[in-house]
Design a protein around this nucleic acid. Structure first.
Lengths: 339, 339
DNA sequence: TTTTAACACGAAAACGGTTTCGTAAGCATA
DNA sequence: TATGCTTACGAAACCGTTTTCGTGTTAAAA
């Protein structure tokens, strides 16, 4: 690769010092008009652009925000990222995106890599394995250093930090209410294991709605999916009992879409026999047959908020820190054919 | 934010020089064993990690690969990214992902930003607007400098460079052959405007299959979607004529899924009346009703290959350059219920 | 006793910028 | 003529590392 022009080469070429070039390029009026013009013309002609590493090192500021997410193939996270990018872009920040692949070790590696000077702040959605282990020392170390961090969606329970979350509990509650309002009595839920915070909250809200109505969920109508086993089999169990639910809430889009297909294969009509509602921000719900009613998550908003928060933290002075915030992104129901 | 420990602070604390610390940390046996032990213990205790900016500046090597894609919410691109990440991770590279949002200007900005020292190489899938304009000067400048670049999926036509593409033409051809082999006679295609290279190639292959069979596509059965108008309306036109196709190929997953829904709404049965086949690597095709037959793109493979190529270019010596390569990722048919 | 070599460490330059401070030249003022 | 003030620029430090090239000390060899 050919070397790019830098301030030194310009200086040598023009017979002035590097400092003169630097000042001339920013139109410092410390430098004579002729010299300024000469330097600027030369720089333009050779398409000079300052080296960002050198700038970052000098200014102790990279204008980069690190983002750590568990999986990039999850549509929700890509919505969040596009929201982050939208704000970052406005404020001249760039993104460095790392994937933890839901692994604790990779998450730690990513964090170490990013916090060694590469980024000014960090946006994190925690890996499943980390949540399962419950080990958050790597976050606490950074928080103690007052490194700017904002957690989003999957947050560390019981840790003081800035957070942006979806109102999962209320979303689950509204899903329950909606099914009940459609006259459904025997409700079911397709959920996730205990350590996945968001799943738990959605489930909790769902149960709250049901209790308020004086109803209950039969144990066999509560399926907690273990992703390491066959998902379709686990869902199918809900339809192989003598009784079957007439309204099902799934805590994510894929489970809901799969459940709809499986129910149809078992001969149930949607929504006549069973109504379905999913929790999602995805692209699938419009394309299923019938189209799926969902609790919309607004991942883009979440990204916006998270980016705003972290940038605010980055600019904050050492002396006047604002207290930690938790921003809640509220959901809303998008009613389609499945209810 | 509290300052991190660096080599200087360690040196000062231990009463030795920065160079001694640096050497001690890499177990240089230029340094006495006691001093080495002392420095290493201190570094470990304070969790010292070298500043990556300083390292990059010094070594003229960032261990970062820049990726520019049009949209992160396109599932195909996220598959490619996860493929890129897989290889990059193995070779200790990190990713800096930028979004062009399919805009020419943003693409240029991204490139300028990334090539000012931030990355060692670049992986690019070109913005639609750039392809439309046909202006590739920003790429040619970099290629002339011999900056390591690999284009993937959406490539600049007629430019010498490393490229990784899906075998779109063959994919289209196979889609056509499959529909014909099912006895379909009146074929239709849902495609994209001319400037989207991949769409054109898929269409070309499709037509080749049809011509070989001595058949033809009626003009009203060729719909080129303009995304700025209502997509469903444009697709619907195919079903409002007196004649209708009995086999439809859509050049992407969303168009195919939408078309299936619209056809069903119009009362057609799939695949009895109309067979559908989509071009995709997505998550939707398993969840539609009926499930969708697709030409699978293997975005993950594409990401692998692209990353391997660019890393190879990065390590290449100035003297012995290998000639430009074009790697073709072949597709395969995944047959499901829609045919 | 002198030379030589090994050992253990430090000074300084380099990566590519920015910024503070110093200073020579030119001119006006007393 | 001596002093002060601009003007226009350069030297040098700094950001955090690495690495080359000394150099002073000690011990071994001559």
């Amino acid at each position: 690769m050919h070397k790019k022009v830098n301030i030194k080469t310009i200086a040598a070429e023009l017979g002035v010092s590097p400092s003169t070039v630097s000042k001339a390029l920013k139109d410092s009026h410390e430098i004579g008009v002729e010299t300024r013009a000469k330097v600027q013309a030369f720089a333009k002609m050779y398409n000079y652009k300052p080296n960002s590493l050198a700038l970052s090192l000098r200014n102790q500021k990279t204008m980069v925000i690190g983002v750590i997410i568990p999986q990039i193939t999850h549509h929700f996270f890509t919505r969040v990222i596009s929201g982050i990018e939208f704000i970052a872009n406005q404020k001249d920040y760039n993104l460095m995106i790392c994937l933890s692949k839901d692994e604790y070790e990779k998450e730690i590696q990513n964090i170490e890599m990013l916090t060694n000077g590469s980024v000014d702040g960090l946006l994190i959605s925690i890996a499943n394995e980390t949540l399962e282990k419950g080990e958050f020392g790597h976050f606490e170390r950074l928080l103690k250093q007052e490194f700017p961090i904002v957690f989003f969606d999957r947050i560390p329970p019981g840790i003081q930090a800035d957070k942006v979350i979806v109102d999962d509990e209320a979303g689950g509650y509204n899903a329950g209410k909606l099914l009940l309002s459609k006259g459904r009595k025997k409700l079911g839920i397709i959920s996730t294991p205990e350590h996945v915070t968001v799943g738990v909250l959605r489930e909790r809200g769902f149960y709250r709605a049901i209790q308020e109505a004086g109803a209950e969920v039969l144990p066999q109508f509560n399926v907690k999916i273990e992703e390491k086993f066959d998902i379709e089999n686990q869902i199918d169990q809900m339809f192989t009992q003598k009784e079957f639910p007439d309204g099902i809430f799934a805590v994510n889009e894929t489970y809901a879409a799969l459940a709809m297909k499986i129910a149809q294969k078992r001969g149930f009509q949607i929504p006549r026999d069973i109504a379905f509602i999913g929790f999602t921000d995805g692209v699938i719900s419009r394309l299923t047959t019938p189209t799926m009613t969902t609790i919309a998550q607004h991942g883009h908003n979440m990204g916006n908020k998270a980016a705003e928060l972290v940038i605010q933290r980055i600019y904050e002075q050492e002396n006047d820190k604002t207290p930690n915030q938790t921003v809640v992104i509220s959901t809303n129901i998008v009613e389609r054919e499945s209810t």
